[in-house]
Design a protein around this nucleic acid. Structure first.
Length: 156
DNA sequence: CCAGGCTTGGAGG
DNA sequence: CCTCCAAGCCTGG
């Protein structure tokens, strides 16, 4: 079985996904869509329905490199919560800028929820557009949001 | 090998 | 409150 490529809609964006079973190789936000399926959880998530993105695995978390450990730490951040670059750095034993670099190169956004990693003083960055990060966090902040956080605590 | 990054905390104005 | 800056380190080219 080969790797499957597909996309679904998230607001004005198209979410491209390269995947196979529960393993995701690549996720990226693009202006244009492409034909093909995406994992059920990602489809539900993008549609604003209850979804558990952490049930998917990412190739980014494989290995023992520093970035892999950073991605694993971020993979464990639950929906509805956020952490700062500095907090992730302390968990992994590195520095905030290394975390920022890793997030900027995250091959699988959503599956490794880099949008839940914010700066201590603000929302932090997001490629290709910080507006996506804001939209994702706003969506997850709702008590009846897609991942139904137990306590509807929005972080900031 | 080197430039630069989705940071941070402290110093100083 | 705000600007400035070095620390510290990982990665792509």
């Amino acid at each position: 079985m080969a790797i499957v490529n597909g996309s679904c809609r998230f607001g004005l964006w198209h979410v491209h996904v390269a995947w196979q079973d529960d393993l995701v190789y690549r996720v990226r936000f693009a202006r244009e869509g492409l034909d093909g399926p995406v994992p059920e959880e990602i489809l539900r998530y993008c549609a604003g329905r209850p979804a558990d993105l952490s049930s998917l695995r990412s190739v980014a978390t494989e290995g023992e490199s520093t970035s892999a450990r950073i991605y694993r730490a971020v993979h464990g951040v639950p929906c509805g919560e956020t952490v700062t670059y500095g907090e992730v750095a302390r968990m992994v034993g590195t520095v905030p800028r290394a975390v920022g670099s890793a997030m900027a190169r995250n091959p699988t956004p959503l599956v490794v929820p880099c949008h839940r990693v914010v700066a201590k003083t603000g929302i932090g960055g997001f490629t290709p557009d910080p507006a996506i990060k804001e939209a994702l966090l706003a969506m997850e902040g709702r008590t009846s949001g897609p991942c139904t956080p137990e306590k509807g605590g929005v972080n900031r």
